[in-house]
Simulated assay, not measured.
Amino acid sequence: MARVSQEHLDARRRQILDGAAICFARGGFHATSMQDVLKEVDLSAGAVYRYFSGKEELIAAIVGEVLGQVRDGFEEAARSTPPPTPDLLVASVLKRVLASKESLTVDGRPAFPGLVVQVWAETIRNKELSAVLQEGYGTVRAAWTRIVRDYQDAGMMRADVPPEHVARTMMAAAMGFLAQQALFGPTSADDLAHGLRALMSMRDGADTN
């Protein structure tokens, strides 16, 4: 019997995750059954359950993957000396994540932003998913905190603000951008970059006189 290659296994796992993401974005977590996922990916139950035990594990895998992409993007930037400015950094990471999910659509609209909002809502009742999200956001926040310290060390940012506070603010900007995508439709991450750049250019009123 021929062995199945790792490339084939990875492609099948990708197929399942993408199909599940579309189902969840279309109908919501609770209204979506595993039968809906099987129909979407056109696979047998045995083929899908080989990779995932059920909806909860699928959701956790989707969330973990996305947060991993975000964390990796920020950690890669943190290795630069100094890192790119916040406007460029947040926009570039968001562009990369959105581009990796652009094939996922529901009724012609990107499915990913709506899926993100559903995940946030689901964490209120799902302790396991909440733990996955907490851990993932913790790693992203830690990466941002290191970046802010690098800004401060390079004299690019005022040093009297705790790095953790700036990290949470930048994460809030990215999360708010995704929420607006879900509610109001697609916009370019460049819009967020432009807005952040304008805010970064502000000075205290006393400095303008």
Results as ranks from 00 to 15, higher is better:
Glu102Gly: 03
Lys101Glu: 13
Val148Thr: 03
Gly108Lys: 08
Tyr137Asn: 06
Gly138Pro: 07
Pro83Tyr: 08
Pro82Asn: 00
Leu115His: 05
Lys101Phe: 12
Ala142Ser: 08
Thr123Trp: 04
Asn126Lys: 08
Arg146Leu: 09
Ser100Glu: 01
Ser130Asn: 14
Tyr137Arg: 12
Val119Met: 05
Leu94Ile: 10
Ile124Met: 13
Arg141Asn: 09
Gly138Trp: 01
Ser100Ala: 15
Ala91Lys: 07
Gln134Gly: 15
Ala121Ile: 10
Glu164Ala: 11
Glu164Asp: 09
Gln118Asn: 07
Ile124Thr: 13
Gln118Thr: 09
Gln152Cys: 03
Leu88Lys: 13
Val161Asp: 06
Gly138Asp: 04
Val90Arg: 09
Ala131Asp: 12
Ala143Cys: 03
Lys127Ile: 14
Pro110Trp: 11
Arg96Pro: 04
Val106Phe: 03
Gln134Arg: 13
Thr123Ser: 12
Ser130Pro: 06
Leu115Glu: 01
Val93Pro: 08
Pro113Asp: 02
Pro110Ala: 02
Asn126Arg: 07
Lys101Gly: 00
Val148Gly: 01
Ile147Leu: 02
Val106Ile: 10
Glu128Asp: 11
Val116Asn: 00
Gly155Ala: 02
Ala91Arg: 13
Leu104Pro: 11
Met171Ile: 15
Gln134Met: 15
Val117Phe: 11
Leu89Trp: 02
Val132His: 07
Arg149Asn: 04
Leu115Asp: 09
Ala167Val: 00
Met156Ser: 07
Ala159Cys: 09
Leu129His: 01
Arg146Ala: 06
Ser100Asp: 00
Pro86Val: 00
Thr139His: 15
Pro110Asp: 05
Ala99Glu: 12
Ala174Trp: 04
Met156Leu: 15
Leu129Ile: 04
Ser92Asp: 12
Val140His: 00
Met171Gly: 08
Glu135Gln: 12
Val90Tyr: 10
Val90Thr: 12
Leu88Phe: 13
Gln134Phe: 12
Arg96Val: 11
